[in-house]
Write a protein that binds this DNA or RNA. Structure first.
Lengths: 342, 342
DNA sequence: CTGTTAGCGCTTTCAC
DNA sequence: GTGAAAGCGCTAACAG
């Protein structure tokens, strides 16, 4: 009896359990799922024993077929090596698990698949919801219609998108906070901006907007702007670019931790003192920013809260189109002994 | 006609396509799957048109139920925030996609689920294979039996495990290479070791072994050993610990990039010159190690090759129990102008 | 409270 | 070359 399902390919099915317990398959279902009909205590116990004895495991493919749902949420992301997205992904996976879902992750760079193909694949797998970390298709106003009624949420949105449910950090304010910190606490006056080209995050990028409005408020001129790739290498290249300026900016706001880290390397190699000659701050606040040298002062994205919201929203049958904005937190890191003031 | 499946919950099924094309469902199947029976050219065309017109998408849950396979590989990983595992995961996802599989990722830290529960869940989802990045269950000699015939591979193994198919870097040799580099190229004589406690990677850890055998070969004494957590924070703590030693070691071998990065921070804060006073090298070779300051000389894990092998092996019906070892590559990074010699 | 049963959408054997 | 039909394992009416 216990022979079946111990090793060979043939798994134990609900019918085996029913036979073993001397009940019908329906009752097994009621016990396994805790419903929808009540089961007598004695029967219940017998079924549990059978489940145990046979080491029964439900076949989720069959369940998904029957229910039209797979207890799975799809996440489409542009670059899962970016620590921000990596951390975000983990947080989402945790939140999803807490609701009994598993995450199916599709990295749109990992193949020549268009994002559209990834969506098709995920939908074919009966995902119950779709989270878009990228914007191409997410921003397509028609996209909602093509999802066959599966709820979807854009999880890294710079602002509202007509007809879509979106989540994003208060990026403009976050950027402005950093610029004010540089000016008011550290007295910097030539504040440069390093941002990624072909922004993944709105056009014009809200971080640019925050930078320039804060400068305007402060009565400071706009420092140089360098547009580069959204990567450590891009940040490094931007650093080389900035080093050509005379005078050097006395501070740089990098629009992502990754670029800031690359920038630091370029400045170090040139023998520039940080933050003595040039202060560097960045946007994201991943673990990597804390362990760079010097540690970066950042505005941190509220990853936990955004992840929770993403899962809550996508778990809603018909999420209301609306933008959900999350405030960012200034994290001052002061290895140089500069005053840890906000 | 085209109304169905445009938005509402009801998807287009094979029956709809068959009706539209005026054929049987079997023929639709033959066309969609390119077999197993031939289809007349004209019919073929008619079916393709129907597929197109109705925007048909196969239901992979149904397919998985019928076939007992889901075109999915499960990956169980201990810490997907570790850049090494993050990079490895991406590489595996790519290799899997190239073979028509998608990756289902389960982070064993992401909840109190035991690794065993994750396995059960993945198996219930009909995964075609299981990749273990962690070792607890993977090393269990009984584990193979509990997987119901699903192929499994340990992807981060320090060495052979009886009865299991395993993959891993040539860690002992990699560690020894780094130590030799420190001694022979840079003339270091007091080489410390920083390793993670409760190693994820064999006990005793092969890196320890490589470190001490290389020192023995070189006729050098063993420097201090600090055991810490496998994290940036752990590396930082180890750094503080090492700073208490007098004399300071003149080099440190950190068993992971992550710990090395933490260590660097501690040394920087103490005003130690790197690599002037203390050289730091590490094991992994992730992107983060390249952009630390100073950039780390490392031995790099051959992630691409290991990922490819992992997918190839797990895609084999009954993988032969054997260990597959991959040589590591020394990457010398010399920001200080020290000779870039191997 | 429990059993019977009709499918979910797909693949494939077996007839034609 | 094509169609009819039998399930894969599960859920949830519905009938007892």
């Amino acid at each position: 009896m216990a022979e079946r399902g111990v090793a060979g390919g043939s798994r134990v099915t609900r019918a085996d359990v029913a036979r073993y317990a001397g009940v019908s398959t329906a009752v097994v279902s009621y016990v396994v799922n805790g419903g929808p009909r009540p089961v007598a205590a004695a029967t219940h116990r017998r079924v549990r024993e059978a489940l145990e004895a046979l080491n029964y495991r439900p076949n989720l493919s069959a369940r998904a077929l029957k229910m039209g749902s797979s207890a799975t949420i799809g996440l489409i992301i542009a670059d899962s090596l970016n620590p921000f997205f990596a951390e975000f992904t983990i947080a989402i996976a945790r939140a999803a698990e807490a609701r009994g879902h598993r995450l199916l992750i599709a990295d749109s760079r990992s193949s020549r698949d268009t994002e559209g193909e990834l969506v098709e694949d995920l939908l074919a797998r009966q995902v119950d919801g779709l989270l878009f970390g990228t914007s191409t298709l997410g921003l397509d106003p028609m996209a909602g219609l093509r999802l066959y009624g599966v709820p979807s949420v854009l999880i890294d949105s710079a602002g509202p998108v007509p007809g879509r449910t979106t989540i994003g950090p208060a990026a403009t304010e976050g950027a402005a906070t950093l610029v004010r910190h540089l000016a008011q606490v550290h007295g910097r006056t030539r504040i440069a901006l390093v941002l990624g080209a072909g922004g993944g995050f709105g056009d014009p990028d809200p971080r640019t907007w925050g930078w320039q409005t804060a400068l305007a408020e402060l009565g400071l001129p706009r420092g140089p702007i360098v547009s580069t790739r959204w990567s450590r290498e891009g940040g490094y290249a931007a650093g080389l670019e900035l080093l050509k300026r005379d005078p050097l900016p006395d501070a740089v706001f990098a629009c992502s931790d990754l670029m800031a880290v690359g920038l630091l390397r370029a400045l170090h190699e040139a023998g520039v003192s940080i933050p003595g000659d040039v202060a560097v701050v960045s946007f994201d606040g991943t673990a990597e920013s804390e362990f760079s040298w010097p540690p970066l002062t950042v505005v941190r994205q509220p990853i936990q809260a955004m992840a929770q919201a993403a899962v809550d929203l996508v778990d809603t049958p018909e999420p209301t189109p609306a933008h959900h904005e999350f405030p960012m937190e200034l994290i001052v890191r002061a290895p140089c002994g500069c005053p840890p003031i906000t």
